[in-house]
Structure formats: structure tokens, C-alpha cells
Design a protein around this nucleic acid. Structure first.
Lengths: 119, 119
DNA sequence: CTTCTTAGTATCAAAGATCATACTACCTAC
DNA sequence: GTAGGTAGTATGATCTTTGATACTAAGAAG
């Protein structure tokens, strides 16, 4: 992760902070890539804790298997916290960890870009 | 894309701007997801125009086929500009469009998150 | 005793993404 | 005439992701 901010060239139209070197984008893609992870993170980060069944209802088209997979992967990467209540029928709550909450800025930038992009 | 900013709840530890509703994350994932697109965009956005062969050398492990595919997909989505020079041997240059340049903030947020995440 | 509930697992099939390899065009240099 | 360089295309194999379906546990309600 060698990165640094470059000063602008004389002929550039505007100062552009440049990230040099290689950000391990493949790793990042692993963390937040895939068909469902961005959706899951967005919900847990901006809407708060959710139960398994609530997520299934809220996310259109996701299957139980995939929901479990993706949540487990996110948990393993420290982005989602899983809390099991010892009840019957079972109750499991999922919430964003601090590490995930730190992604808010990225989501907001993404959102802003999308909005601008549409106009 | 119904979105709005929510005011904070009384018991929240800090004010958190919340993006409500559904950002079409699946669409965004289509645009910038996949194994190579983030890498390509990062290079073209922050390092500038590159020739086909330069990209192939710079991106470890990518095949010619995938490089072509991904560049074509990005071009189709208006994120990459393709300039062909009528020479032999051929010369083709790729560069980020304005729409792609608008993704800088997102990349920077992503980068900042990754750096913080590592510490 | 049967049914309902939630949060899963297990299994196999289908679809999609990626890879390896071989091939092309065209001009230049030897 | 042969090889080299660039930017591809074409093809089939494989690897990964995703989907559909059926199944489980354990108590509660009837």
C-alpha cells in the first residue's frame, strides 16, 4: 500500500489529488464485492440492526442460502456482528461493526456520484 | 432512488447522516464491480491515459481477453474513452471520462477506509 | 399429536465469469 | 521471405457464483 499525494502538473486544468501506487483493490473487491454485500452493508450501516428474516424480506430476490453466505462472509471480515438470542423460535440480529460504519463516507461518495451521474 | 437525510435520534452517540431508501447498489455493482474494473479505473483516474499493452503489463495476472472485455464494458458505460491511432502496429489509448473522474471521491474514501482499517 | 415459527444446512443444477490457447491483420526491419 | 510488434478475436474448458429445493431443530399453540 505505498500511497502518496502528488502535486499537480503545470498544465493540468485543476489540482487533482492523486493516489499513487497500488491500493489492493482486489482485496477490497473481495470484502465488498459480489451481488449482495453492498446492499447488506448499506442496510445495516444506514438503517441499523436487522433480524435475519427482516433482511430476507427487505432484499428483493435474495435466497436464504445466499443471505446466510454473505452475512457469514461479512462477519468473518469483521464488517458485521451477529447476535444470537437463545430462544425458540430462534432470533438472530445482525448489525454493522465500527469497521463497517467507517465505510459510510465511501457509500455517501458512491451515492453522490450516482445522483450526479443520473442528471 | 428515494433518498433523504435523517436527523439523529436522541440516544445516538453521534449525528449520523443516513441515506434512506434504496440506492441501486446492484446497478453500481454492475458498473464498478467484477475482478478488474476497480483496478482499471484506479489506474486511469489517478495515473492518467494508458495504452492497452501498458495496462496489460501493469495489471498483474490479467489476460488479454479480460482486459478487452472490461475496457469495452467500461467504455459502454461511459467511464472510459478509447482512442485509436491509425498506425501499424496499432496504438490504442484508454483514458477516464469525466464521469469516471467524478468517482475520485469514492476512491479516496475507499482508500482512506482501507488505510484506517489496516491500523 | 400436529402444525407453526425462525434461522438456518445440505445438495445438486444452472448460470456466469474467467482462463488458456491459438489465431488474425498490417507494416517494418532484417 | 521471415520474424517482430500491437491490439485485438475466437473457442472451448474450467472455476466460481448463484439459485432451487428439500430438510432440520426446538419450543409454542391448538
Amino acid at each position: 500500500m505505498a500511497t502518496k499525494i502528488q502535486s499537480r502538473k503545470q498544465d493540468s486544468p485543476a489540482p487533482i489529488p492523486v493516489i499513487e501506487g497500488v491500493c489492493p483493490m482486489p482485496d477490497i473487491a473481495q470484502l465488498i464485492g459480489g451481488k449482495w454485500k453492498l446492499i447488506l452493508l448499506q442496510i445495516l450501516i444506514f438503517q441499523g440492526t436487522r433480524r435475519f428474516g427482516e433482511l430476507r424480506k427487505q432484499i428483493d430476490g435474495i435466497t436464504q442460502t445466499m443471505l446466510t453466505n454473505q452475512l457469514r462472509a461479512l462477519e468473518k471480515d469483521g464488517l458485521v456482528r451477529r447476535k444470537v438470542y437463545p430462544q425458540v423460535p430462534p432470533k438472530v440480529e445482525y448489525s454493522a461493526t465500527q469497521r463497517a460504519m467507517d465505510l459510510r463516507e465511501m457509500f455517501q461518495a458512491m451515492h453522490a456520484w450516482w445522483v450526479r451521474s443520473e442528471s
